[in-house]
Computed example of a mutant assay.
Amino acid sequence: MSTITTGFRSITAAVARAKGEPFTVEPARIRAPRGDEVLVRVVAAGLCHTDLIVRDQYYPVPLPAVLGHEGAGVVEEVGPAVKDLRVGDHVVLTYGACGHCPSCIGGHGAYCRQFFGLNFGGGDLDGQNALQDANGQPLHDHFFLQSSFASLALARENNAVKVPKDAPLELLGPLGCGVQTGAGAVIHSLKVAPGSSFASFGAGAVGLSSVMAARVAGATTIIAVDVVPGRLDLALELGATHVVNSRDTDPVDAIRQITGGGVDYALESTGRPAVLEQGIEALGSLGAIGVVGAPPLGTKASFDVNSLLLGGRSIRGIVEGDSVPQRFIPQLVELYQQGRFPFDRLVKFYPLERINEAADDSTRGVTLKPVLRLPQ
């Protein structure tokens, strides 16, 4: 239970204290919500690849920090400027956006002009923190405007998405990032068309979300490429019509054979430049590939310019599936409840104190989408 202590509430949090080191689960404190902030009792939070690459400092988020950006929980307190959310509402926490720059106003919050500072800055835009450790020392926070590896998290009203109370709240956190990214890339960014062909390079949580979305979108040839047989088997159960183990078979040749020349759409979610190069070569004429895999900053990839030019092919960088979360997350919940988007097949639950086991299982490919249950 949370207690109020000199204006702060006591929480339990997983802290990334040093580059590449295990998370430490420890007591901490969080301040009350201000302005348009909401304080959320986190029921569960997905553990995403981005949490791990920040822990390992691929992105320069200052440490020590409380990470976590796929939280789901119940609103416990609201700031004075909150308009629509109420105490007791069930919410999924998603990425942060300013809400007023040209990208945000145009419905493209994932490309907010302040995206990196808001989501990866380690504090608010003034450099202030809402979290302290047990010794009163600041902890870097505001990760994706939530830092949800904690029993309580602060978000803003515009990144706390209300969801139906009859939906399984502890399952829904991954909709805020990884699942939204894969599904949104198919539906919003690439606009995969009925009767088309689609290939997912990578069959992790993001890749398999794209496979399920391609099925929903009406693609009739859906190809999953990976090196883990179990993931490929699951891809077939979730909607893939073909799978390619790229450890045994050249995926470019295989895709050209399956499609009769090349795929209409593809998504690269591994963050490996060599895989991206294969994905580009696997495109048919006028084909498009989306890129969502995040390697270390400064990573370069190459492609044959004439192949891109003469085939009319295109490469598209994608953040958060080009989603408007307030609209798309409830749509994904409805698809799940209808049995058309069974993303629960990707999930394995862990208590927060086993976060390092979850991270290791994710890195080794044992678990597709770890979800951490927070102490209540």
Rank of each mutant, 00 (worst) to 15 (best):
G239A: 08
V206N: 11
S269L: 07
S189G: 03
E268R: 02
I280T: 10
I280R: 14
I280M: 09
G218N: 04
P229G: 04
G204P: 09
T270N: 13
T259V: 11
L232E: 13
L234A: 10
Q278M: 07
V228S: 11
I289G: 09
G230D: 13
D250M: 11
S285W: 08
Q257D: 13
G284N: 13
A183T: 07
D233H: 15
A214G: 05
T249E: 15
K191T: 04
V227G: 05
A193K: 15
V263Y: 03
V192Q: 04
L232C: 07
A240W: 08
E237M: 08
T241I: 01
I258C: 05
T270D: 14
G207Y: 07
A219T: 06
S200A: 15
G262Q: 03
G284T: 10
I223P: 15
V263M: 06
G230C: 05
G202E: 11
A183R: 07
A193C: 12
S210D: 02
A274I: 03
A240Y: 06
G290M: 04
I258D: 02
K191G: 10
A240H: 08
G195W: 14
G279D: 02
A274P: 00
F198N: 11
K191V: 02
I222W: 07
A288N: 13
G260T: 03
D253Y: 00
G260A: 01
S189L: 01
S246T: 12
F198D: 09
G230N: 14
D248P: 00
T270V: 05
A214E: 03
D253T: 13
T241Y: 14
V216G: 01
L236H: 14
D248H: 13
G195N: 13
D250N: 15
S196C: 03
E277P: 07
A224E: 07
G279M: 06
S197Q: 06
V225W: 00
G287L: 10
S200K: 01
E277S: 14
R247M: 15
G262R: 05
F201Y: 12
G279K: 04
Q257H: 13
D253G: 07
D250R: 07
L267M: 10
A205I: 12
G261A: 01
A213V: 05
M212P: 02
A224V: 07
I258V: 04
G218F: 00
A193F: 05
A240R: 01
E281D: 15
D250W: 01
G207R: 10
G284K: 12
G218I: 04
D264I: 06
T181K: 12
T181L: 12
A282W: 03
V244K: 08
V228G: 01
G260E: 06
P251G: 08
L276Q: 09
G261L: 02
V206E: 08
L286T: 14
V216F: 02
F198V: 09
R231P: 14
H188G: 11
P273M: 09
I222D: 00
D248L: 15
D253P: 00
P194H: 05
T270H: 14
S210W: 00
V263F: 08
V216W: 09
G204Y: 04
G290R: 01
V227F: 10
G182Q: 04
V227T: 15
M212D: 05
V252R: 09
V192C: 08
